[in-house]
Computed example of a mutant assay.
Amino acid sequence: MMNIMTSSNLTVAIAVPLEAELVESIRAADPAVTVLYEPELLPPERFPADHAGDPAFRRSEAQEDRYWEMLRSADVLYGFPNENAAGLAAIAASGKVQWIQAMAAGAGGAVKAANLSAAELQRLTVTSSAGVHALPLAEFALMGVLNGFKRTAELAANQSARHWPEVRTPVRLVSGSNLVVTGLGEIGVETARLARTMGMNVSGTKRRVTPIDGVDRVTDTAGLPGLLAAADAVVNTLPGTPYTEKLFNADVFAAMKPGTVFVNVGRGSVVDEDALLEALDNGQVSYACLDVFAVEPLPVTSPLWAHPNVLVSPHSSALSSAENRLIAGRFIENLGRLRAGAPLLHVVDPVHFY
C-alpha cells in the first residue's frame, strides 16, 4: 500500500449503511481525503449497526452500476461491498482498492470465503473491528456464567409452569471460582478483567504464550486440558480457523470437571455441537450459553433449541448502540496511520484468516 499512503488524492468509499454524522466525522478527520457516500445506494439500517441493511432493499440497474462505479474508483473501502464475501471477491478482482475496513471482529471468515488469489491477498489489506466488540461480548459472556451458576434456566422454567419447588436448590458462588478463557485476545482479556472484578480466578490460552496481568496461568492449546480440570466455567472467544475447527470435541469436554458452565462468543465452528450435547446430557456441562453456531441461522431441527440447559442467542451479543461510532473511530485512527505510513491495527492474517 506504499503508493497510497502519501497520496494527496486518496479516495474512500462508504460501502455499507452509516449515519451521515459519522460519514462527516470521517471527512473531517482528513480534509485531503475524498469520501464518497451515496446513501440512496445503500440499504437502510433496521437497527443500530445493521451493516447489511434491510434485505428487501433493491437497487435499480442504474443504481447498481453507480454503486460499483463508486467502489471501483476508491483506494479504500469502509465495509465489504454488499457486506458479504461475494462483494469482497468482486472488488478484489477490480484491482484498485488496497484497504478495506471490515465491520466484523471475525472478518477472517469472510476473507477466507471470498477465495481470493495469493496475489489479491498480498495486495489487499483487510482490517477487522476486533476490540470494538470486546466489552459487549465480555458482558454477555459473564451473563452466561452467572446464568449457569445461578440456575436461571430452572427459575424461568419454574416460573413458566407456576411451580414453587418444595425443596430449594442452592446456587454456586462466582467469587472464588475458576474461569478458563480460550483465546486471550482483546475479547478474552476484557472477559478476564470483568471476571476478576467478581472475584474469579482466571486462566486461559493464547497462540503465542505471554504473561497477562491478572491472568494466573497462560498456556497454548496443548495445555488446555490441564486448565479445564480445575475450571468451573469456560468462555470461548476463539475465531474460526482451520486450527480451531471443533477444538471443543468429546475429549476436551471429557477433560472438564462435571458441572462446568460453557459459554461461546467466539465462532460456532470451534465447537463440535454433537459432543456438546452429549456433555450436556451426561452432566459434564451443566449449562451452555451460545451466541454462535456451526450453521447460522441455527437450523430449526437442532436439539440445542429445546435443550433445558442451553441459552440460544442469535449471534447478537456484540451489538450495541455505540457500535457504528466505535468502528468509525477505529477507521479514522487507521486512516491517520495509513497517511503517516504506520502499520494498520487489526490486520486480518491472510494465512490463518483471523
Results as ranks from 00 to 15, higher is better:
2 M>R: 15
4 I>R: 01
6 T>H: 14
12 V>S: 07
14 I>C: 08
15 A>S: 04
18 L>V: 08
18 L>I: 09
19 E>C: 10
22 L>E: 11
23 V>W: 06
24 E>M: 06
30 D>S: 05
36 L>F: 01
38 E>F: 13
51 H>C: 13
52 A>G: 15
55 P>E: 14
56 A>F: 09
62 A>S: 05
64 E>V: 10
65 D>L: 02
66 R>W: 11
67 Y>K: 09
68 W>S: 09
76 V>Y: 10
78 Y>W: 09
88 L>C: 10
94 S>L: 13
100 I>L: 04
105 A>V: 04
120 E>H: 03
128 S>T: 01
128 S>Q: 03
129 S>F: 14
129 S>P: 10
129 S>Q: 11
130 A>R: 15
134 A>P: 01
135 L>Y: 02
137 L>H: 03
148 G>M: 06
149 F>E: 01
150 K>R: 14
162 R>F: 08
164 W>D: 03
165 P>H: 07
166 E>S: 10
166 E>Y: 11
167 V>K: 15
169 T>D: 12
170 P>W: 15
172 R>H: 08
178 N>E: 15
180 V>Y: 00
181 V>S: 13
184 L>S: 06
184 L>M: 11
191 T>H: 00
196 R>C: 14
196 R>Q: 01
200 M>D: 04
206 K>W: 09
208 R>C: 11
210 T>W: 14
212 I>F: 14
213 D>L: 15
215 V>I: 05
216 D>W: 09
219 T>L: 06
222 A>I: 11
222 A>V: 08
227 L>S: 05
235 V>W: 00
238 L>Q: 02
242 P>W: 07
243 Y>L: 02
243 Y>H: 05
246 K>R: 07
249 N>C: 05
249 N>V: 02
250 A>H: 10
254 A>E: 01
255 A>T: 09
255 A>L: 08
256 M>R: 05
257 K>L: 02
268 G>M: 07
274 D>T: 10
277 L>Q: 02
284 Q>E: 09
297 P>V: 15
299 P>F: 08
301 T>E: 04
305 W>G: 04
306 A>T: 15
310 V>A: 04
317 S>A: 12
318 A>E: 14
318 A>C: 12
319 L>A: 08
320 S>Q: 01
328 A>F: 11
329 G>E: 00
331 F>T: 07
349 D>I: 01
349 D>V: 10
349 D>Q: 12
350 P>G: 14
